[in-house]
């Protein structure tokens, strides 16, 4: 396009581009090849998503050919491996919901308080010590947290609540909450530190104290970031596996009482995978139906998070 324009303006018949400046075909090809390879690497993430959806949906289709979707959603028993098989996913969902609620009721207040403290109160020294601590806490393997819930937290809780059984949603949920705190704290702190200084100065200039400024100006301004961190926390809680598999017991139990043991969607999958189910059997298929349910729940929260972000987009 450019060279055409040039030749139109060029009265003589001289070559428009000298040999030295002409595009090097070989170099061009190898550059293109490299670009294609890099694109391929980037596309792996898309393939992963496609693979996840494909596996979960195709195996679930086999499952729903044998189990009606109404039973799946309404049955109040989950006994897929018994002779009298029932497939009521609500049993597992209840365990997931209760443990997640316990976890969030610890993680959201604690994480938010830490975030406000670090972003609005702490000096740089405290922050430099606190951030690595939070990072280390977030890096602890969940199996270790599971051990902690079962063998440390549960015995301690049993001193306060003597009727608490050895496995319970409560102690698993509490430890899960501690595990999630760093995620909320660090994402919320990022959101609050992104609030421009001019807003804070406006509040301080009116005679606000630090806490008043934080709660009435900074937090509302960072609302969408906070909401996003809570949504991620929900996804983490719903998808957490090992803490529950270790400390919440794995028997299916339709309950809303955190003091009871119960299986969750995730711990059920672990339980089945630990056994030796033949490929393609109904028991094998249940874990994909459970997995699909799990993915749909996290997807709903992800969409909710994106909607919140769009609706309350910060315009400072």
């Amino acid at each position: 396009m450019n060279s055409q324009a040039m030749s139109a303006n060029n009265p003589s018949d001289l070559p428009v581009v000298s040999d030295r400046l002409a595009k090097n075909a070989m170099r061009n090809v190898s550059e293109r090849l490299i670009e294609a390879l890099l694109l391929g690497a980037a596309a792996v993430s898309v393939l992963t998503t496609v693979g996840i959806v494909y596996v979960l949906v195709s195996e679930s289709i086999h499952f729903f050919q044998q189990v009606s979707i109404v039973d799946f959603l309404t049955d109040t028993q989950w006994t897929p491996l018994f002779d009298d098989a029932h497939f009521g996913i609500m049993v597992l969902v209840s365990g997931t919901v209760v443990s997640s609620l316990v976890a969030l009721s610890v993680a959201i207040p604690m994480g938010t308080i830490i975030a406000i403290y670090l972003s609005e109160f702490a000096n740089s020294k405290v922050r430099e010590i606190a951030k690595p601590i939070l990072e280390l806490l977030g890096g602890i393997p969940t199996i270790v947290f599971g051990y902690f819930a079962l063998l440390v937290v549960t015995p301690v809780l049993q001193v306060i609540l003597p009727e608490l059984p050895g496995f319970s949603l409560l102690s698993a949920g509490l430890v899960m909450g501690i595990m999630i705190v760093p995620y909320i704290a660090s994402l919320s702190e990022d959101a609050m530190r992104a609030v421009p200084m001019s807003l804070r100065e406006g509040a301080y200039a009116m005679g606000s104290t630090r806490l008043y400024t934080a709660l009435h100006v900074v937090v509302p301004a960072a609302f969408s970031g906070l909401a996003a961190s809570y949504i991620l926390a929900i996804s983490r809680a719903v998808g957490e596996t090992m803490i529950l598999a270790v400390a919440a017991g794995m028997q299916p139990n339709l309950t809303w009482n955190p003091m009871e043991p119960a299986a969750t969607i995730t711990s059920y999958i672990v339980q089945v995978a630990l056994g030796d189910l033949p490929h393609g059997s109904i028991g094998y298929l249940t874990i994909f139906a459970a997995g699909l349910t799990l993915l749909l729940i996290t997807l709903v929260f992800n969409i909710l998070g994106q909607w919140l972000r769009a609706k309350f987009r910060e315009n400072y």
Binding site: P196, S198, L199, E201, G202, A203, A205, M206, H216, V217, P220, A221, F223, E314
Partner: peptide
């Protein structure tokens, strides 16, 4: 002592 800033900085309210 009140203050008005260079860039308008209304609170998110």
């Amino acid at each position: 002592v009140g203050m008005v800033f260079q860039k308008p900085n209304p609170f998110p309210k």
